[in-house]
């Protein structure tokens, strides 16, 4: 006999009110990434004008407070959006439950690791460490 209630089995499997949050945050990160992407591209022009993608030019540019804060937002929104998007792809195309969840866990941990490493790097450069 199963003691677990149907609710307990449904939890965390996609239909416990977490869908809207996923959908909403995908849109919020998209909205954020539109101006941030345009800023990022414009910054690449600025780096070219400023002397190319040399170590000194990049660190000089990234140590400015505005570019550092915008880069933190860009990196954070990018990895969050990446996690959400790859999760949808896994849910749509990976049929096996084990394979699907393995992929989703790897994507989640990978994006978290990538985000923290990149955010730390931006802070380290910005604070001159």
């Amino acid at each position: 006999m199963r003691i677990q209630t149907p609710l307990a089995r449904a939890r965390h499997l996609g239909s416990a009110m977490e869908g809207p949050e996923h959908w909403w945050m995908q849109r919020m990160t998209s909205l954020m990434l539109i101006p941030l992407t345009l800023w990022f591209v414009a910054s690449m022009w600025w780096l070219v004008v400023d002397g190319g993608f040399t170590y000194e030019a990049l660190r000089d540019w990234l140590s400015g407070p505005i570019s550092a804060v915008l880069m933190l937002l860009f990196v954070g929104a990018t990895f969050y959006h990446l996690k959400l998007g790859m999760q949808v792809i896994a849910e749509d195309y990976i049929i096996g439950k084990v394979a699907r969840w393995t992929f989703i866990i790897m994507i989640t941990l990978g994006c978290l690791t990538g985000a923290v490493a990149t955010l730390y790097a931006v802070v380290a450069v910005a604070l001159g460490g």
Binding site: L62, T78, G114, T118
Partner: peptide, 29 residues
């Protein structure tokens, strides 16, 4: 979107090497 995941990895590598020092940034460059 999937292809841009590799771009995010490059962004990560680029900035981490920039933080690590000139000898590491040389790899990115």
């Amino acid at each position: 979107g999937v292809f841009l995941a590799s771009g995010a990895m490059m962004l990560c590598f680029w900035l981490v090497t920039a933080a690590a020092g000139p000898e590491y940034y040389a790899w990115s460059e």
